[in-house]
Design a protein around this nucleic acid. Structure first.
Lengths: 271, 271
DNA sequence: GAGTGGTCTAGACCACTAG
DNA sequence: TAGTGGTCTAGACCACTCG
């Protein structure tokens, strides 16, 4: 029987700042903000409080207090409570039954898909990300990249090809392409960790959402060697186009993930 | 260059009842309800109205009217308008910029993942689903199925194995397992279309959400023959566990999708 | 500064589930 | 029937963007 993604990767997912163990990596913005002074909206704090008090550690299908009671307890309007619970529902932490109540979902079930970089993804899974740069240069966009980025074929782009590892083990081959106009002097940068961090902090490009296409492939000899797997192993090919808040296409990435070590795991809902 | 999922499958996705072409298949509940008398909540109707009036057919990054104006126009409170727009945002149809405005997203970009049956999925892609039953019997749960359904190994289950086709072409091999207690006399049923329909209308089991794990595999000789692809072709293996509103595990499905014809296509967002 | 989206309130009525 | 979540209102203030 094949090992599931859960067993491979998913520890206590330390949601909502409850008890996340810090490693010695750089922290995300989110964690920084949470540490100093909590200026987050009330509904987010309430979401976390509800999680800690009524959900974490509880068996599944436990009832949580009705919205009106929670409104009293947290001194908030019912609308605000509903917004907090709405977030928990979106993350598949609780489910609601009209006329019935709100109940906890079985723990260990994975939450919905979020836009993350490889580094964030691997760190969230409790492993240490690293990478080996294979290519790092300016080039002309080929037909596929230009189509995905909506730039003219042959336009100046920056290409970064890396072997990405989790706990020192090869996990994925990744090729990022960015229109050069967005990252003028990037060749001089030293790219080590999250490329999204570089985009955001050095160039003010904030990824907001991405379009992803996943397909299965059989690895070619060159890739097999880099990923250290058996010839003709299966892999997940993930093609991503990332957009910022203004709808600009800021980068596109093609990744090949080892099929034996990496699976996609997510929750889907009925409309 | 590989053909993208968009080119393969995604036509005008006829969202929000705007101009969906009806085929001669059975209709979903949703469409029925929309046809007779519209008892849906106001915010849903407004969502559709906004979509039709300000989004469909517009170029991307067009501004839509501010919330306060829309509240006047549709004679609703701003909260209700925000709820409608929130749905559009969740479906990746618009994006918002605080202090700026609300803008349309590029059309043709796929919306977020939803829980659908194979039939619904294929129909949404503008093709006609069909299937060939390969196995249809009661059996004892094996170790993997019992673990996924949280029943004792050896418990009575119903197994349905089908080859599923789109426009007459083999697309996927699918094996559904359901605890027999939920579907007592199912062997007598004639399973043709959507199994979710049978669960819902014959047994009152309403799928609400599902946990899915996707991995790549290389097809084995027997499967290759059924799917009519070359030996050792890659495929997507999708393992799903479906839950109802009460958190019960109502079915689990293992599917093998042809890698050359079927891709997963979805949008992810930043937190 | 004017206009936008983001948050929040206090209260109301409806639809549904349960004992 | 009592209690739950689902919807909706009218108004307020804040944070942000833009000209």
């Amino acid at each position: 029987m094949q090992v599931t993604a859960e067993e491979l990767f998913l520890g206590k997912s330390g949601l909502y700042g409850s008890d996340r163990p810090m490693d010695d990596q750089t922290f995300s913005d989110d964690e920084d903000r949470r540490d100093q002074e909590d200026t987050r909206p009330k509904y987010m704090k309430i979401r976390d409080a509800i999680y800690r008090k009524y959900i974490a550690g509880r068996p599944s299908n436990s009832v949580i207090p009705p919205e009106r009671k929670l409104a009293e307890e947290f001194k908030a309007s019912r609308v605000t409570i509903r917004k907090a619970i709405g977030k928990l529902e979106a993350d598949n932490v609780v489910y609601k039954v009209q006329g019935g109540g709100t109940y906890t979902v079985e723990p260990g079930i994975v939450k919905s898909l979020k836009l993350t970089s490889f580094s964030e993804d691997i760190r969230a899974r409790g492993m240490v990300p690293s990478s080996r740069v294979l290519l790092h240069e300016r080039a002309q966009a080929d037909r596929e990249a230009s189509w995905r980025l909506k730039v003219s074929p042959g336009a100046d782009v920056y290409i970064l090809r890396r072997l990405r590892l989790a706990d020192g083990e090869p996990m994925c081959l990744e090729e990022v392409t960015v229109p050069l106009e967005y990252v003028p002097d990037i060749e001089k940068q030293n790219i080590t960790g999250s490329f999204y961090d570089v985009l955001q902090h050095k160039y003010g490009l904030l990824p907001v959402w991405a379009d992803q296409v996943v397909s299965p492939v059989v690895l070619e000899p060159g890739d097999v060697k880099l990923l250290q797997v058996a010839p003709y192993s299966p892999a997940l090919k993930i093609v991503r186009v990332t957009f910022d808040a203004k709808g600009r296409r800021i980068e596109t990435t093609t990744s090949l993930y080892r099929g034996d070590k990496y699976m996609l795991h997510y929750a889907v809902k009925r409309d």
